[in-house]
Amino acid sequence: MHRLYTRATAPCAPASLPPAMTEAIAGYAAEYGTGDLIAAAVHCFETVSVRLRGPGLMARLTGTGDPDTEHRTVVLITPTYVVVCVAGEKRGVHIRAARLTDVRIQGSHRKDAPDRGLTLTGWWVGPYAMSSLYVAAGDDEGGRTLRAELDWALGAARQR
């Protein structure tokens, strides 16, 4: 299988996020009463995804293909929540947050997998209920660190 994106993941500072993302996260937090998610973040990771080719025929016909040639995925880990924020020029900004105690994580460990991101399944805060969310992550040191920190945070939350 061919890769669909090139992805690079790196730790980041919540204060360095683009204003559109921080405003959207703050609005989400205010709407759903999660507290200040940005101030509470103990880890922050950003993945830049660049699409390598256009959407396939079916995706073009159904309008389900990725509308952006480049998008950013930010994962904030707080002591209580994992927050995923995805932003692209055409897609806008989308946010989901879930309590760490309500999330399960899966990732592709196959070397031949076209993408090495993570799938988070859990009860999401807001109108989403129980569902799975794919989180883009690079097949690099940053992506491995994201997975390790998320695994640790999930374990620590369950120990409380």
Score class of each variant (00 low, 15 high):
residue 117 G to S: 04
residue 109 H to M: 13
residue 115 D to Y: 12
residue 86 V to E: 12
residue 71 H to A: 02
residue 91 R to I: 01
residue 88 G to P: 01
residue 3 R to T: 10
residue 31 E to Q: 14
residue 48 V to Q: 11
residue 80 T to C: 09
residue 55 P to E: 07
residue 46 E to N: 14
residue 70 E to F: 02
residue 106 Q to R: 06
residue 81 Y to R: 00
residue 17 L to Y: 04
residue 27 G to S: 09
residue 90 K to F: 11
residue 41 A to N: 05
residue 99 R to T: 01
residue 112 D to S: 08
residue 51 R to I: 08
residue 34 T to M: 00
residue 100 L to F: 02
residue 104 R to G: 04
residue 47 T to E: 01
residue 93 V to M: 07
residue 107 G to P: 06
residue 37 L to W: 04
residue 37 L to H: 11
residue 44 C to T: 06
residue 62 T to Q: 13
residue 45 F to G: 14
residue 109 H to F: 13
residue 86 V to H: 06
residue 73 T to A: 05
residue 99 R to L: 05
residue 29 A to K: 12
residue 31 E to V: 15
residue 8 A to I: 07
residue 25 I to P: 00
residue 7 R to L: 15
residue 10 A to S: 09
residue 111 K to R: 15
residue 35 G to H: 06
residue 80 T to G: 05
residue 116 R to V: 14
residue 3 R to L: 02
residue 95 I to A: 00
residue 32 Y to K: 08
residue 44 C to A: 02
residue 63 G to H: 11
residue 71 H to W: 09
residue 111 K to T: 02
residue 76 L to V: 10
residue 8 A to F: 10
residue 21 M to C: 14
residue 39 A to R: 03
residue 39 A to C: 04
residue 95 I to F: 00
residue 80 T to A: 14
residue 4 L to I: 12
residue 98 A to Y: 11
residue 48 V to G: 13
residue 2 H to V: 07
residue 41 A to S: 10
residue 4 L to E: 06
residue 103 V to N: 00
residue 107 G to F: 09
residue 55 P to D: 07
residue 109 H to I: 03
residue 105 I to M: 05
residue 64 T to K: 01
residue 10 A to G: 02
residue 47 T to N: 13
residue 72 R to N: 07
residue 65 G to F: 09
residue 32 Y to P: 01
